[in-house]
Amino acid sequence: MADKIRIATASLAGCFGCHMSLLDIDERLIDLVAHIEFDRTPLTDIKQIGRCDVGLIEGGVCNAENVEVLKAFRRHCNLLVAVGACAINGGIPAMRNQYSLTECLEEAYLHGSGIDQPQIPSDPELPLLLDQVHPIHDVVWIDYFLPGCPPSADTIFTFLDELLSGKPIRFAYRQIHYD
């Protein structure tokens, strides 16, 4: 099955909603799987990305690990796709850009309500947060954008289906929305 399209996916600063939407393709997945195989993705639990045709990125970039993952995807994928509002413009996580990182961390770990042992976490195991949340196109070149929070299963399917068929990708009016 050398002709199968190899796809990797990742969720950065996202909520996995876009991945849920991918799964929401339902029975059409069966048709798709005949033509695609998954590389690194939360669905396969493969940790290291290999050479891929397509990378689907959900979520924006909020920490150092997101940057590393995103760069690894860019290096390994021929086509990198921003999937969903957070990847496209930072989405809900980027609402923290209204505040400084210090303000955010102090509110969350020091001064917020119901805090037991006030302390801002610091451990080499933890990725450091960026001072702002960024859309992924701020960090690497992105070839395609699928808007939506999440993009509907139909939108994702149409995208993959038309990509596989080599057709120019066209969406029906209702398939494109930002919410």
Binding site: L101, S122, L129
Partner: peptide, 13 residues
């Protein structure tokens, strides 16, 4: 863009 976080956590690893 990590500078602020480094300052808060005191990390330099």
């Amino acid at each position: 863009s990590l500078e602020e976080a480094r300052a808060i956590t005191g990390r330099s690893d």
